[in-house]
Design a protein around this nucleic acid. Structure first.
Lengths: 67, 67
DNA sequence: TTAATATGTAATGTTAGCCTTACATTATGT
DNA sequence: ACATAATGTAAGGCTAACATTACATATTAA
């Protein structure tokens, strides 16, 4: 699933490790989500939404959107 | 995580099996989510949101909300 | 350039979210 | 009352989403 994490993280000037710490997950988990290897759990998606002050729908895009 | 699935399903007069079929998951998966045994995957949460025409945030409540 | 930081990824393990099958119980309708 | 539909749950299996540790490769800063 596509997401805007890299951009949101850049806007806040947070490293993957910074974000991981805020979320209480491993840096590898953040990396895997950002690079599209995993989808986050719903709980983690909520945590990301709260961290960035945006809705889950604003951060994640479930549709295959062929570009 | 708390959710409003039972109510939303009742409003639409759908059985768990009906909803499961619309979502493309098993009836047991719907039951487990409804009864709080599992959280849905983010993908399934998006599908539920679309099915009920509501946002994920309107359907699910991640906070422990004591009562 | 060198050192520090950031990112990507691999290996291995655990758990949670799905599956199927099956059965018990509860609710609904005739 | 009886048959059907709906719900709850259990067992057993599979995979994805986490974890930890470790290492390689950027990237940044002094």
């Amino acid at each position: 699933m596509k997401n805007r994490l890299r951009v949101l993280r850049a806007e806040n000037r947070w490293s993957q490790a910074d974000l991981a710490e805020k979320l209480g997950v491993s840096r590898q988990a953040v990396n895997a989500i950002e690079t599209g290897k995993h989808d986050p759990s719903l709980t983690l998606a909520f945590a990301l939404a709260e961290t960035f002050g945006q809705s889950i729908e604003e951060i994640f895009c479930p549709k295959e959107q062929n570009n």
